[in-house]
């Protein structure tokens, strides 16, 4: 099963490689990883998307907790949460769908952030599924390049992780 794991850790050099190293060392699968500073500049938040059985997930959470710089670990999937991913995609306006680009942008509620003669750069944010659906709506040949951030997430309401 797919899990979104949120990790609060000390904002220190080396902390990221410790987490990444743990996943390779123990053979845990990693689909995406995002990391950035939080409102407390001494802490970072990392969001990891991984998959595995409940037992594997239990080990992932325990092993993450064991890292000295990790302050808190939480499986967002098991609670009420909001998740988002950001996509930047360059779509060629030459292809047949060229006419459709604006229409699709409207349907998906996303933005054209840059246009050059033949290329539209589009920004989409949403759940991973929505981003996949957006990309599926185009002829693969018209997609020139994509850059995705991977998932970030947060629990809902007053609860902190």
């Amino acid at each position: 099963m797919r899990h979104i794991i949120s990790v609060i850790l000390e904002n220190e050099a080396g902390a990221l490689s410790r987490v990444a190293g743990l996943f390779t060392q123990r053979g845990f699968n990693i689909e995406s990883l995002t990391v950035a500073i939080t409102n407390d500049p001494s802490l970072s938040r990392m969001t990891i998307v991984s998959s595995g059985s409940d037992r594997v997930l239990e080990q992932i959470v325990k092993q993450l907790n064991k890292l000295i710089e990790v302050v808190k670990v939480s499986d967002l999937t098991s609670q009420d949460h909001v998740e988002r991913e950001l996509l930047l995609a360059k779509i060629s306006s030459n292809s047949k769908e060229g006419v459709n680009i604006k229409e699709l942008v409207e349907i998906f509620g996303c933005k054209v952030v840059d246009v050059t003669d033949k290329v539209y750069t589009i920004e989409v944010s949403g759940k991973t599924k929505k981003i996949n659906a957006f990309l599926d709506a185009f002829d693969p040949a018209s997609i020139i390049e994509v850059s995705r951030t991977g998932v970030t997430g947060i629990s809902r309401g007053k609860k902190l992780i």
């Binding site: 037992r55 239990e58 080990q59 325990k62 092993q63 907790n65 064991k66």
Partner: peptide
């Protein structure tokens, strides 16, 4: 003392 040892190999 180490929670990660528990249920690692044997539940």
């Amino acid at each position: 003392i180490d929670p990660s040892q528990i249920s690692k190999n044997v539940v």
